[in-house]
Design a protein around this nucleic acid. Structure first.
Length: 201
DNA sequence: GATGCTAAGGTCCCTAATCT
DNA sequence: AGATTAGGGACCTTAGCATC
């Protein structure tokens, strides 16, 4: 394999540099309406996809799809995020102290059969606020925003749901289907996607 | 089995806001 | 001004895991 690689190495590196040079030329003209996090990466990805002939729009679609998948997995595997999502299925907004939120999340977790015995489920309010900050951006991506601020003698959490794009809680096991390979058993996710050159970006 | 590393939780102390 | 309350940050401890 390395022999074949060494044989083609010059062409591979040359091609990559040519693509990069072309992408650098059009990069200043790449203007996107809405830039997600990693905005610079998105612009470069768009420019490179354009010069490689795939089309920037196709890159954007694939990148968006991949980000959504990653986000859903992150939320599903995080007990606090999953419970907040479950809580906001019932409510358009929620507010109260961090301690009362912890109690509410324990109630919802029990209702939704989410395991609160795992180590990552907070047992104290200040641990909960840490956990919330960890998943703030993931929750924002599914339309849930929150704000923690001083109000009276306690910290008040205000959670808002925008739109109706709150994702469902995923099952605890499933099957990952890969094109061209046998299906493999995985934990926590179920994916079945058409092949796409940008998959995994 | 011993050792080292890493991540998470618990404890202590500090801060901010409110009450008396 | 001091006491009280709730939450955050820093530090320490502990459990789980990998490596030898």
């Amino acid at each position: 394999m390395w022999e074949a690689f060494e044989k083609d190495r010059a062409s591979i590196v040359g091609g990559a540099l040519q693509a990069l040079a072309k992408a650098m030329a059009i990069y200043p003209n790449v203007q996107l309406d809405k830039l997600p996090r990693m905005a610079d990466f998105t612009r470069w990805g768009y420019a490179i996809a354009e010069v490689l002939g795939y089309g920037g729009e196709r890159f954007l679609q694939a990148y968006r799809k991949n980000r959504n998948q990653s986000n859903e997995e992150a939320i599903s595997s995080h007990p606090v995020a999953a419970t907040v999502v479950a809580l906001m299925k019932e409510n358009q907004s929620w507010s109260g102290s961090v301690a009362s939120l912890l109690g509410e999340l324990e109630r919802v977790a029990e209702q939704e059969k989410i395991n609160t015995k795992v180590k990552t489920f907070p047992k104290a309010a200040h641990i909960l606020s840490r956990r919330l900050k960890e998943v703030k951006s993931n929750l924002e991506d599914v339309g849930i925003t929150f704000d923690i601020r001083h109000a009276g003698d306690s910290k008040k959490v205000s959670i808002q749901k925008s739109g109706s794009n709150v994702i469902p809680i995923r099952p605890q096991s499933g099957t990952l289907k890969l094109t061209g390979t046998d299906s493999i058993e995985v934990k926590d996710i179920e994916l079945s996607e058409d092949y796409d050159e940008f998959e995994g970006w």
